[in-house]
């Protein structure tokens, strides 16, 4: 049985998550979607606003999914899968998790990637963050959690563009600098081409070199930069580098995505993708997307030093080279 895709919709309070989800479920292409909604507060309301079959909407109440109900999330997803297998719910083809506006998506992504009860059955498809065009810039200034939501997303959806222009108020530029590789889509009252939301982390277009040419950016404690290397890296270098970064950078590393030219696999770049210290197994492309064959590693972090990471990468590769030669 192939793994079911699961996506996470995150975004700050009032940024349009529920509206987007509600419209999404009205799209015939997505009618076979099961939804898990997490609400922060004693009484959940969002599920009443989402138009779908009740049996396929599950509530997680009593806390924020990222900190207090992570186990519940895993159990709920497991229950959904069991009910699907037993035929007690309409067969669904996708799960969408809507987080609270205050949630840090990283622990949710970690649970989906690593929990052994569900990781074989579910495939993390995409992390989608909504950002309000009218209030988004102020929210990014005032709430670090919203910066993290935008930084961790695979896809950013700017909402309420009918009442504010994200290009005019600087939000568009800010999001581009914060998360250059994430496509930026717009939605008015939740209306958009929903198929573009679910292209997932694995998508060649995400590795378009132009996305990585953004200058180093720092705002609100979050900095984004790209490590580049013209010479191929040994596979061992990559493994040691990731191990070292995970060990020492901890929660300061928000996201790392890369396209790596590996000595042992010429012509077939490796795609690496991690959220904090949790990484997907590398995927291998059949060929380079274009003529640019340099290694590019995009880092979104809370204050990590780009030059330090670049020096570290070079030092490790020198060591691996020396071991290979001696």
């Amino acid at each position: 049985m192939s793994a079911l895709p699961v996506s996470v919709i995150t975004g700050f309070l009032g940024s349009g998550k529920t509206t987007l989800l509600s419209r999404l479920l009205r799209d015939p292409a997505f009618e076979r979607t099961a939804v898990i909604i997490n609400e922060f507060g004693a009484v959940g309301l969002d599920h009443l606003l989402v138009e779908s079959s009740d049996e396929q909407i599950l509530m997680l109440e009593g806390g924020c999914v990222c900190c207090t109900v992570r186990g519940d999330l895993v159990r709920t997803a497991g229950d959904l899968l069991a009910r699907r297998a037993s035929g007690t719910v309409t067969p669904f083809e996708r799960i969408v998790i809507e987080t609270t506006g205050l949630a840090d998506p990283a622990p949710i992504v970690h649970a989906l990637m690593t929990d052994r009860d569900i990781a074989d059955a579910l495939r993390l498809e995409s992390v989608i963050a909504t950002v309000d065009a009218a209030n988004g810039a102020a929210t990014l200034d005032a709430h670090p959690q919203s910066v993290k939501q935008a930084a961790l997303a695979d896809c950013l959806v700017v909402t309420k563009t009918d009442i504010a222009d994200p290009a005019a108020n600087g939000l568009a530029e800010r999001l581009q600098a914060l998360n250059p590789a994430a496509p930026k889509l717009t939605a008015v009252h939740g209306v958009m081409d929903a198929t573009r939301l679910f292209q997932g982390a694995y998508d060649r277009a995400r590795y378009d070199p132009a996305l990585y040419e953004t200058p180093p950016h720092r705002h609100g404690g979050i900095n984004t930069f790209c490590l580049r290397r013209e010479k191929p890296l040994h596979a061992a270098t990559l493994s040691l580098f990731l191990q070292l970064v995970a060990e020492h950078c901890g929660a300061k590393l928000l996201r790392l995505k890369g396209l790596i030219d590996v000595v042992e696999c010429p012509g077939q770049p490796a795609v690496i993708h991690g959220v904090q210290h949790v990484f997907h197994p590398p995927a291998w492309l059949d060929a380079w997307p274009n003529d640019d064959r340099s290694t590019r590693i995009v880092v979104i972090s809370q204050g990590l030093d780009a030059q330090w990471l670049q020096d570290l990468l070079e030092l490790i590769d020198d060591e691996v080279n020396a071991c290979s030669i001696s």
Binding site: A3, A119, Q243, E247, Q276, P281
Partner: peptide, 15 residues
Amino acid sequence: HAQRGRLIIGAQSLR
């Protein structure tokens, strides 16, 4: 006392 992490490779491939 510095924070230390541990590399975890998830069960899911990107593809």
